[in-house]
Computed example of a mutant assay.
Amino acid sequence: MSTEKIKAELRSEFGKGAARRIRRENKIPAVVYGHGADPLHLTLPGHETMMAIRHGGANALLEIDLDGEIHLALTKQVQVDPVRRVLEHVDLVTVVRGEKVTVDVPVLIVGEAAAETLVVTENTTLQVEAEATHIPESFEVSIEGAEAGTQILASQVELPQGTTLVTEPDTLIVNVTARQTAEAAEAELESAEAEAGIEKDAPAEDTEGE
């Protein structure tokens, strides 16, 4: 896992008004927590930070350069404007090289299951413990040729050396079921309607020519 270097500035203004002024300058307000130290309230360059987080993924590791002092930090929470899709605020947590951290890592489903099946992803992330500078960006789970009835559990996901599973081993990650036919769906609907006492109206008689 590579680190991304970001040059930061300390900020002394807080509140919504200050945050808006920072964003107008194409910068991002951020806070760095961790290791018993007081939180650092920073301003980060907008474009560089956005690209670093895109490249590093959900657990991007940043080298924060604050007046020549380097702070190694892991992204913890990223707030994104729902309309403009730009970063609004970033929370980071300080880490130390060699330190183990617990993080949620995305699960990527690859391959194509057998015909006439439905693939349901029950959990999109796995919680693992890994060294702070060696956090996997994602875990690949192959469903190539998987038949109906196939279930993939957390314990079956291959983890790189040095990474330990924290999620319960029997947690269901992927469930492959038989695809329901239109006839079966209609029969199931009619059965449910019958149980609920719903009666369908009889088709109207053709009165043409009367």
Rank of each mutant, 00 (worst) to 15 (best):
R23E: 03
D170C: 05
S138F: 11
A18S: 07
L87A: 00
A185Q: 12
R54Q: 13
A196E: 14
L165M: 02
E137C: 05
D67Q: 15
A8G: 08
H47K: 12
M51Y: 09
S138H: 11
T121S: 10
G57R: 03
E99R: 08
D38S: 14
K16N: 14
T207F: 12
L62T: 00
I143G: 02
E25H: 10
S138D: 12
T43Y: 03
E199H: 15
D104R: 02
T171N: 04
K27T: 01
A184H: 13
A115H: 08
V119P: 01
E48G: 06
A114V: 13
L189W: 02
H47I: 15
P45A: 05
T43I: 06
E140R: 06
E140G: 10
V78F: 04
T177W: 13
L42D: 00
S138Y: 06
Y33K: 07
H89P: 06
I70C: 03
V141G: 02
V105R: 00
L87C: 04
Y33R: 06
R11Y: 04
E158I: 14
R179E: 09
A182W: 12
I135K: 00
D67P: 09
E99L: 05
G197I: 02
A178H: 15
T167A: 04
A204P: 15
A204C: 14
D170W: 05
A146Y: 07
T163D: 00
V95C: 09
D67F: 12
T75M: 04
H47D: 07
V31G: 04
S155I: 11
R23A: 02
G57A: 12
K200H: 10
E158W: 10
R85K: 07
P136H: 09
R24G: 08
V119L: 11
A202N: 15
V166N: 04
P39H: 13
G15A: 10
V101Q: 04
T75G: 05
R85H: 11
G149N: 12
A192L: 14
T3Y: 06
V128M: 02
A187R: 09
T167K: 01
L172I: 09
P136D: 03
Q161K: 15
I143P: 01
T167F: 02
Q180G: 15
L189E: 06
T150G: 04
G111M: 11
T133K: 05
R23L: 02
D91A: 11
V120S: 14
E193C: 13
R21V: 10
N123Y: 10
A37L: 14
T43M: 03
A148I: 07
H47L: 13
A130W: 00
T125P: 01
E13I: 04
L189H: 07
S12Q: 15
A148W: 00
A178D: 13
G34E: 03
R20S: 15
T164L: 09
I152H: 00
L74D: 03
E25R: 11
R54E: 12
N26M: 13
R84S: 08
R84F: 06
S155P: 02
D65S: 09
L44M: 03
D81I: 02
D65I: 10
E88V: 01
K5T: 07
S191P: 14
L40E: 08
